[in-house]
């Protein structure tokens, strides 16, 4: 079992193998995310019951929460990929980390934007200096830092390693930032989903949300694989197999 995993892990480090296998996975992920997102959106917007306090405006939760969850998990994935790249010097891990950053930044922006749109009818203000909002804003700054550092280096390898260190430092800091702003000011409702407790919402409300979250993850997987494949082609363009691939088409 362990040996198969190690063998798989090592093969994943080869750009060519990664390119081939993700080429086969992308259609499945794309179809799954399209189905889940369409089903989840229709269910959430048309069939889920209204909130007794917030009316229809609460429905933005079906975009807001998945984007916020992804924003944080993508940062974690980016740091892990960066660590793998630093420790085992795997090129593919560097490329995955690089492809994560813009997607994560977009998700953070979507979470902030939908939060502002939702905040206007609920709290009466586009922006409040609340802990969660501030933490998300800082997360966005961390993403921008990683992206800026990646492009600041002339050598792609050094850029990847430097931003891997920065994202690891960021991962250590995210819980510190989270708790510091939480003690500083809190207005936001507590987390919608936790692994240990039953959601406070009725099932008709949270099941479509869960569908949306899974749909967002599949969508992220699709985009990540597509971006990483592009990155592989770009960086490996001098190799034999990429030349062969290009001349075939």
């Amino acid at each position: 079992m362990w040996k198969t995993f190690v063998a798989w892990f090592h093969r994943m480090g080869s750009p060519k193998w990664f390119y081939d296998i993700t080429g086969r996975w992308i259609p499945w992920f794309a179809v799954a995310s399209a189905l889940l997102l369409i089903a989840g959106t229709v269910w959430a917007l048309a069939f889920a019951p209204e909130d007794y306090q917030q009316g229809n405006s609460f429905r933005i939760i079906y975009i807001h929460v998945p984007a916020a969850i992804l924003a944080q998990s993508i940062f974690f994935l980016m740091a892990m990929a960066g660590a793998v790249g630093l420790i085992w010097k795997m090129k593919v891990a560097d490329m995955v980390a690089k492809s994560c950053a813009p997607i994560g930044a977009s998700m953070t922006f979507i979470a902030l934007f939908t939060g502002a749109v939702w905040g206007k009818p609920t709290w009466g203000a586009w922006w409040v200096w609340d802990a969660r909002l501030t933490a998300m804003l800082i997360l966005l700054f961390l993403y921008f830092g990683v992206i800026a550092l990646q492009s600041a280096f002339d050598s792609k390898q050094s850029g990847a390693r430097a931003s891997a260190i920065l994202s690891l430092v960021g991962v250590v800091n995210i819980p510190i930032i989270k708790y510091s702003v939480e003690w500083w000011n809190t207005l936001h409702q507590p987390a919608t989903f936790t692994l240990t407790e039953k959601p406070a919402m009725p099932a008709e409300m949270w099941v479509p949300l869960l569908v949306m979250v899974i749909g967002f993850y599949c969508f992220f997987g699709t985009i990540l694989m597509m971006r990483t494949r592009n990155e592989i082609l770009e960086r490996e363009k001098r190799t034999h197999w990429v030349q062969g691939l290009l001349s075939k088409k």
Partner: peptide
């Protein structure tokens, strides 16, 4: 500034 200031916030 972009890299360090977010880390200074706590």
């Amino acid at each position: 500034t972009l890299l360090i200031l977010p880390l200074y916030i706590p």
